[in-house]
Design a protein around this nucleic acid. Structure first.
Lengths: 217, 217
DNA sequence: TTAGTAATTGACCTTTCGGTCAATAAAGAT
DNA sequence: ATCTTTATTGACCGAAAGGTCAATTACTAA
């Protein structure tokens, strides 16, 4: 919106190239981590001279931050517009389901975040403080309202949220282990339903809720 | 046992130095990852010339493999000697509890494994195939026996195991996120009990079990 | 005492890293 | 047409990476 006044040729090619670079960087950082990825690898993957990357993004750090920022922008944490009046079973079931779908279908971004947090979240600290923490606080308050209204068991809302995050993201971040243990090459169509069903069963029943009727997709 | 016949001075100093190096390497690899750790950093941390490390361990890869092997050797997966005759509630409660204690008190090794699996488990594949997979198979069979005997709900045993692993390890691998979200600097004494309680409540109740009476520690 | 083996380490090698720079090309404004 | 600004890129830089090597030291077995 700031540069909407000039849809020049320059602007267009610049954004095209930046997108090209960011796509390549996202893929490589996700697979190999920050330290495991070099600027020349990104350049080669994006079919762009290395110096051009340094022209658009001032450093490797800058590029990495841009990659993370872009993912965050696309990434809706879900569970929005949830209120104490809602039915916890439906809300949580849908949340689990959407997280499992995300984990199975788009594991790269989840893994990028995971490796970032593993190293102490150097680039995500500020984001967590400014965004995630208040977001979590709000959901936790709703959970607590449900508990107070006897809609569900008295389970610490923070740990309930961590339980949902951990169980669902596990299938993205630790995909290699899951597949090795289950002796599979990749997830198949039935896995999403099977995983969702198992997790939802344990968690919902585990906090005193009933699993909602499932409508055909 | 092969060189037990010669407890020379040489042997002693060799093992002492190897341990020194492995300790330093384990710590650094855990914190910074494989690519983020350099041989000279390890040398400095172990107070040993870099060339000496290359003398004992032929390459960085070799050292890394030795670090992983040593952790695996120390690492008992727990849940051993479990049989269909056991009480699932007690067995699983104790398993969750021991995993939480491990996650909170010794997160470094957990994180080393996590970052290894994140990258596709290049060094752990063989281990998983040879050890973890059969280990899992055995536990899964016991879980299934419990299900068949109506001792617990019919939840896919693999996903039940993944649920236990993910929820407990989360507090080690994603410690940075947990602490940031909860606005803490570190885990305190009450956290282990609180985490154990929350996870055990959800999972045990979630598969139709009762939480065992808790005896004072 | 001495011959032989294992351990130690400073110096050095090649490669690759992130990053700079100057020269050139392309585009927009006048 | 010309001037100014922005993009593009090959060549290059110092630092640090993993690893080698040869010379020296420490130890053991005869």
């Amino acid at each position: 919106m700031s540069t909407q006044t000039k849809p020049n040729k320059k602007e267009l090619t610049r954004e095209k190239n930046q997108t090209l670079i960011l796509d390549a960087a996202e893929q490589l950082f996700s697979q190999l981590g920050y330290d495991g990825t070099s600027m020349s690898m990104i350049a080669k993957e994006a079919s762009v001279p290395k110096a051009n990357i340094l022209y658009y993004f001032k450093s490797k750090d800058g590029l990495y931050e841009n990659v993370i920022d872009r993912i965050i922008a696309h990434w809706n944490l879900g569970l929005d517009n949830v209120s104490p009046d809602d039915d916890p079973a439906h809300v949580l079931y849908n949340y689990v389901k959407s997280k499992v779908i995300l984990a199975v279908n788009q594991p790269l971004q989840s893994r990028l975040f995971a490796s970032e947090i593993l190293r102490g979240a150097p680039y995500l600290q500020n984001y967590f403080r400014a965004n995630t923490r208040p977001w979590v606080k709000q959901k936790v308050d709703v959970f607590q309202a449900w508990i107070d209204a006897d809609k569900m068991d008295n389970v610490d809302p923070y740990h309930l949220l961590f339980t949902i995050w951990s169980t669902t993201q596990y299938y993205a971040d630790f995909q290699a282990e899951v597949l090795l243990v289950m002796n599979k090459l990749e997830y198949d169509e039935t896995d999403v339903a099977q995983i969702t069903q198992s997790i939802a069963h344990i968690i919902l029943k585990g906090i005193g809720l009933k699993i909602p009727e499932q409508r055909e997709a």
